[in-house]
Design a protein around this nucleic acid. Structure first.
Lengths: 214, 214
DNA sequence: GAGTCATATGACTACATGGTCACATGACCA
DNA sequence: TGGTCATGTGACCATGTAGTCATATGACTC
């Protein structure tokens, strides 16, 4: 947690520090980001940084908290506006699109989260631990529920399909970092979603093999 | 390219250096791997390393070459043993399984490749450039071909589905690093493949929505 | 034995990092 | 005016890195 000194700072200065730090952590991994560079670019002394934050990791967690807050808000809003008749595919599409828009509007926050996914598992675990049970098994529950509603093939394991979506969302995040504002990304997401929903093999066609007694 | 000195080395010493270097690069990213640590563990002087390789990157590329060689051999073998009636899903399954077995048998080489995928895009590009057109659009061609044979739904864009498989293969690679020798991974891959083939939504069921005039 | 040549060495350089600390500043109050 | 206290400062420390180079070794030849 930042020290109280940080919150006593004049708004302008605080924002400047946050911005510069986001620039740094937004496109470098934790170990490659440099505190020295941050204080130089923010125009403050090295020592001052340590009046505001415990250490580098503390600053990092603070920024990450800002990002998580924004992203959760965006996704929650997107889901709330869906209406009760939405099935799991509508939900996933909405979540993915919200993620995309968030990345478009706050590229550095998105970059921050994206870089976290590239860190070593131990580091990731350490970061996630600081945010408590916030990262619950959201999607796993969705799929479980959807399966009971008959929206998901009964032979599919909810945790398997959840891990697939996680991989895809992660990849989607990576692909966004470069080509933001490009609407082709959202089209790509929709295509991915279509494939996840219907599969690659043509349905009800001659070419189809018989598979495990279906 | 390693200097000729390296290849003049006694077999035992050369292997020792390769092994220690693989240990280092196999579970650390390029910038986090330490040459100092390597020479210490290999029991040679720092200067000697520079008799064998141009620099750190040269050593890295050499190891990466060994990995690529092995992996390509494994996958090629797996595909050759398939028989001509195999469709694209058989091919993908075979490639994924070959990748898994390769990771099981050479965990450090697999880790090396996996770490490359975690590097920054510019770095990746630089590495790939050194291997020439070796990383051709393999899968993209498969899907194009499969589409012409009616094995892939006609509305699907080959490059889209290719990028999905790439993401999944990448995720599969990450998940393997920890839990090797665990046969559950291969089962997971098969499940993923099934979902890609048939989709998550139940086919021919009441619950199904009508989608774009199918 | 002298000379040559590939190879081996590790102290060294130059640089970067995160973090510290003795001290300076300046606003506020008695 | 003198004292107190939050805040600001940057030289400095310990540690790490990749890479260099003058020197040493030891096998081989003449």
């Amino acid at each position: 947690m930042p020290k109280s000194t940080f919150f006593n700072l004049p708004e302008e200065k605080r924002q400047r520090i946050i911005n510069v730090a986001l620039d740094e952590f937004g496109d470098r991994k934790f170990n490659e980001a440099s505190l020295t560079r941050i204080v130089e670019r923010a125009g403050i002394a090295k020592g001052s940084m340590y009046q505001y934050f415990e250490d580098k990791f503390d600053l990092y967690l603070y920024l990450m908290g800002l990002g998580a807050e924004t992203k959760i808000k965006r996704i929650t809003e997107a889901l709330d506006s869906l209406g009760p008749e939405a099935d799991i595919f509508d939900k996933l599409r909405a979540a993915a699109r919200a993620g995309f828009k968030m990345a478009r509007d706050h590229p550095r926050l998105a970059g921050l989260a994206n870089n976290l996914l590239q860190e070593r598992p131990e580091f990731m675990a350490r970061v996630i631990a600081h945010f408590g049970p916030l990262g619950d098994d959201f999607y796993g529950q969705w799929f479980q529920q959807a399966k009971e509603l008959g929206q998901v093939d009964e032979r599919i394991n909810p945790s398997t399909v959840r891990s697939m979506f996680e991989s895809l969302f992660q990849a989607q995040a990576s692909s966004m970092v470069g080509r933001l504002t490009d609407e082709s990304v959202i089209a790509l997401v929709d295509e991915w979603m279509w494939i996840m929903e219907h599969g690659v093999r043509p349905q009800n066609r001659k070419g189809e093999k018989e598979v495990e007694g279906r």
